[in-house]
Design a protein around this nucleic acid. Structure first.
Lengths: 149, 149
DNA sequence: GCAGAACAATTTGTGCTCAATCAAATCGTG
DNA sequence: CACGATTTGATTGAGCACAAATTGTTCTGC
């Protein structure tokens, strides 16, 4: 019973849609993250931006967007808020003034330690084993690649 | 290599996050849907609301929100736009005036036929077989259930 | 060297999402 | 019947997301 079947019924059900499963799982994840992120004063998008910078500091807006699959028009206000929170600094690149370089401040780096408790909470809420979660993550990432092709 | 491992590196990578896989796959799906939905003049959220009504007409705002995991504060403006497009009618329930009943118009029902071409396009873009897609959908729905527990 | 193309980030406008709050209708209990 | 509690949907404010248009910078061809 799937929306793509050529089958007998013409009543397509919402629960048959992969897109809805992902859409609603994303919302559910947001709901689990919300109280955890409130404690460190970040929204979800701000959090993944910080995770990306913790992984590699001193990026341009464009490279950050490429990593996060977000447009610069989305990132600009997000980064301005992170700057307002004192977690990052935004400076024009000296050699190419079109680019804005994003760098962690001391406070931004310090926040990483406080954020360390979050992933284990999510793992627990997922009700999955580490290996199973890793496999599911891999499959979904592969789906994303196909869709963006 | 996972953010939950107790392993050697303390550098947690964005690509290790299940939440990011789902978050970005959701955006990727949106990007595939966008041009298809443009043809029938709906946004993604408007589309899933219509799918829900095609599955079962004459719902209250609350029951629609329960199905879609959305708050009334999100649904009210979405439904008003669908009403403005002439696809649905919103009327107060005669026996309980607190509730608003949402019903398809003739135009709303007619749109279902035009929307039939969308799911096959998504299936193709996913690069997955029908069975594989159904299995993945099921796993993600199960994850959602765990998260909302 | 200079005009125009290409590029990077920002601004603007539309829509989605939630938390917090509100108003109206209904229910429950005395 | 009366009055407080609950239910239902709507409103407000903050933030995210994109497309399209804009500004400022760099590169290219002549």
């Amino acid at each position: 019973m799937d929306q793509t079947s050529t089958g007998k019924t013409d009543t397509v059900k919402l629960d048959d849609f992969l897109c809805f499963a992902i859409y609603s799982a994303n919302h559910a994840l947001n709901r689990v993250y919300k109280p955890l992120l409130d404690e460190i004063g970040l929204t979800y998008t701000q959090y993944i931006a910080m995770v990306t910078l913790w992984e590699q500091d001193d990026r341009t807006v464009g490279s950050l967007g490429e990593k996060l699959f977000l447009e610069s028009s989305t990132l600009t206000p997000v980064l301005k808020r992170l700057e307002g929170l004192g977690l990052i600094a935004r400076t024009r690149d000296k050699t190419d003034e079109r680019q804005v370089r994003v760098q962690l401040t001391a406070a931004g780096r310090a926040l990483q330690a406080r954020a360390k408790t979050i992933p284990p909470c999510i793992l627990e809420a997922s009700g999955l084993e580490v290996e199973e979660l890793a496999r599911l993550k891999k499959e979904i990432a592969a789906l994303r690649s196909s869709l963006l092709r």
